Computed example of a mutant assay.
Amino acid sequence: MVVTHPFHPLRGEELPVLFSARMKGVLVFVCESDGGKRRVSLPQSWTDRGPEAMPDRFAVDGLTAARALVDALASRLSDDTEDAR
């Protein structure tokens, strides 16, 4: 199994799978690392056995929701500052 998560330190490495298990409804692979010195648990989605990675990191819906949250927080902060005067 190959680690595919873009920010995982073992990205691109092929690891032997010792076993798999479901944790909180997610399929997880327990693998050997460092020549058998360590065990690493990886969700299926972080491996070549998971769904194909999306090329874009941010979706429009997520960015829109984040902007709405920032605007609401900024408005609240502005209201609190005016009340303090």
Results as ranks from 00 to 15, higher is better:
residue 61 D to F: 09
residue 80 D to Q: 13
residue 2 V to M: 06
residue 4 T to V: 15
residue 8 H to G: 08
residue 29 F to I: 03
residue 73 L to R: 15
residue 52 E to S: 05
residue 17 V to W: 10
residue 13 E to W: 04
residue 7 F to S: 08
residue 33 S to C: 08
residue 85 R to M: 09
residue 57 R to L: 09
residue 24 K to M: 11
residue 81 T to C: 06
residue 56 D to E: 12
residue 23 M to E: 12
residue 78 S to Q: 14
residue 50 G to C: 01
residue 79 D to K: 12
residue 80 D to N: 09
residue 19 F to H: 13
residue 27 L to V: 05
residue 57 R to Y: 06
residue 21 A to H: 05
residue 79 D to A: 15
residue 6 P to H: 05
residue 85 R to H: 12
residue 83 D to T: 07
residue 23 M to Q: 12
residue 69 L to F: 12
residue 30 V to F: 10
residue 48 D to T: 06
residue 32 E to M: 08
residue 55 P to M: 01
residue 69 L to K: 15
residue 9 P to H: 11
residue 3 V to W: 05
residue 61 D to H: 13
residue 12 G to R: 02
residue 64 T to K: 14
residue 59 A to Q: 07
residue 83 D to N: 06
residue 73 L to M: 14
residue 50 G to W: 02
residue 49 R to S: 02
residue 22 R to N: 09
residue 62 G to S: 13
residue 48 D to C: 08
residue 6 P to Q: 06
residue 51 P to I: 03
residue 25 G to N: 02
residue 19 F to V: 01
residue 45 S to V: 07
residue 52 E to L: 02
residue 56 D to N: 10
residue 7 F to E: 10
residue 18 L to R: 11
residue 31 C to L: 01
residue 5 H to T: 01
residue 3 V to N: 02
residue 49 R to E: 10
residue 74 A to G: 06
residue 10 L to Q: 03
residue 41 S to W: 01
residue 60 V to C: 01
residue 17 V to Y: 10
residue 23 M to P: 00
residue 69 L to V: 09
residue 1 M to L: 11
residue 23 M to T: 05
residue 65 A to S: 12
residue 77 L to N: 14
residue 2 V to F: 08
residue 62 G to Y: 11
residue 78 S to I: 02
residue 57 R to A: 11
residue 68 A to I: 09
residue 50 G to V: 04
residue 28 V to E: 02
residue 32 E to C: 06
residue 38 R to L: 09
residue 54 M to V: 04
residue 43 P to Q: 02
residue 51 P to N: 05
residue 37 K to F: 10
residue 10 L to Y: 07
residue 59 A to R: 07
residue 55 P to L: 09
residue 71 D to V: 14
residue 77 L to R: 15
residue 44 Q to T: 00
residue 59 A to N: 02
residue 36 G to M: 11
residue 3 V to A: 03
residue 63 L to Q: 15
residue 68 A to S: 15
residue 38 R to A: 12
residue 73 L to D: 15
residue 22 R to W: 04
residue 69 L to D: 15
residue 79 D to C: 04
residue 78 S to R: 06
residue 42 L to F: 03
residue 32 E to H: 11
residue 12 G to Y: 02
residue 46 W to C: 04
residue 59 A to W: 01
residue 82 E to K: 08
residue 84 A to G: 01
residue 40 V to S: 05
residue 43 P to F: 06
residue 52 E to V: 07
residue 53 A to S: 10
residue 74 A to Q: 15
residue 82 E to S: 09
residue 51 P to A: 10
residue 1 M to Y: 01
residue 75 S to Y: 11
residue 80 D to A: 15
residue 46 W to M: 10
residue 80 D to P: 00
residue 50 G to P: 01
residue 41 S to A: 13
residue 26 V to S: 11
residue 38 R to G: 01
residue 55 P to A: 09
residue 30 V to I: 14
residue 57 R to F: 07
residue 84 A to M: 13
residue 43 P to L: 07
residue 1 M to W: 01
residue 76 R to C: 12
residue 85 R to F: 14
residue 44 Q to N: 06
residue 32 E to I: 00
residue 26 V to G: 04
residue 6 P to W: 03
residue 72 A to Q: 13
